[in-house]
Each structure stands twice: as C-alpha cells, then as structure tokens.
Amino acid sequence: MLIELSRGITLHPGSFTAVIAPEKKILAALNSNADLQRFLFLYVCGNYSRILSGIGRTSGNFEVRRPFTADQLLTVIHEASHTIVFIEHDATLFDGAERLFDPIASALKQAGREAMVILWAPASDRSFAALIRQADRIIEIIPEGTPQDRFGFASQRSCRKGGAVPRAQKTLEV
C-alpha cells in the first residue's frame, strides 16, 4: 500500500513522514487513490480543517477524530490503531502547550513503526518544525512558479527555530 503524493514521490507504511505541500496536492493524493479505501484510515485535524470538507471519501474505513488541544492530540495518537494516520497540522493546538512538542514527536515516531503516519502542513511553522524532529522523511512539495530560494530559506529558518535540522530525506519537486 502506497500513497503517491506526486510522480515518483510515494509514502510507505511503517514510517513517520512529514509533508509540506499545497492543499490541492494533498487533496488530489487522498481523493485519487482508490486503494486507500481498503485500509483503515484515520484523519486527524483541529478545529478548523483546511481540507476535510474537500475530501470525497465515503468509505466506512475512513474515520475522523478532531483534537482541539495538544493533550487531546497526544491521546488520539496513542489510541490510533489504523493502517494510515493522517494528521493535518494545526499550530493553534500548541499555543501555550510547548511542553508537548517532544512527547508528541515521540508518539508520532512510535506510531510510525506500525502504521503509515503522515503529518501534513501547507507551510512549516515553529510547532511543525518541532514535531518533525523524529520524522523518518520530510517531503516538501513546492508549487510551480514559486522561487526555489524563497522556500529553501523558509524551510531552513523553520528548522533552526524548532531545533536541529532533521537528518532525513528532503525531496523537492521540480
């Protein structure tokens, strides 16, 4: 079972992958892959989802859980028993809850040993950078026409703020 984010870029089970990609790209990947219907899929998002309403899945295997606090997110990750766990990053969950960066990053890593765990954000921010410290892979998809140096800078800046730069693969779409 694979999710093809873009041509040649696939997500694998048994890993924790951080994805920075435009909403359209993620929506297309989730909506176009009929294979996903066969697997237990958990969609995790906060109070205001960017893409949930655009997901056209009616499969009984597609389930949703919305944590509104970082503590709830930790509970959701601990309790997840799905084949695919897709988390839409919501920075507002971490307002005043920075104490949970490390426990949640560890929980994501732990969950990624058995499931395909994807943490997605359209752009990096301080909390996202902190959560992906233990990610197996970091994939950043740059929209066409966006100056490359601008995004490269943004990504580096985010990592510096959040801590050490992860020693993981970084894939750029040209």
């Binding site: 009984g60 389930e63 859980r65 606090t69």
Partner: peptide, 15 residues
C-alpha cells in the same frame, strides 16, 4: 487540569 479526552472516533459521513 488538562483536557485530554478527545472526541470519539467517527465515520466521515457521521461527522
């Protein structure tokens, strides 16, 4: 003190 009990798991259609 903290709110850690998240909403129950739901099917997409139910939500």
């Amino acid at each position: 003190f903290r709110k850690s009990d998240a909403e129950v798991l739901r099917k997409f259609a139910a939500l």
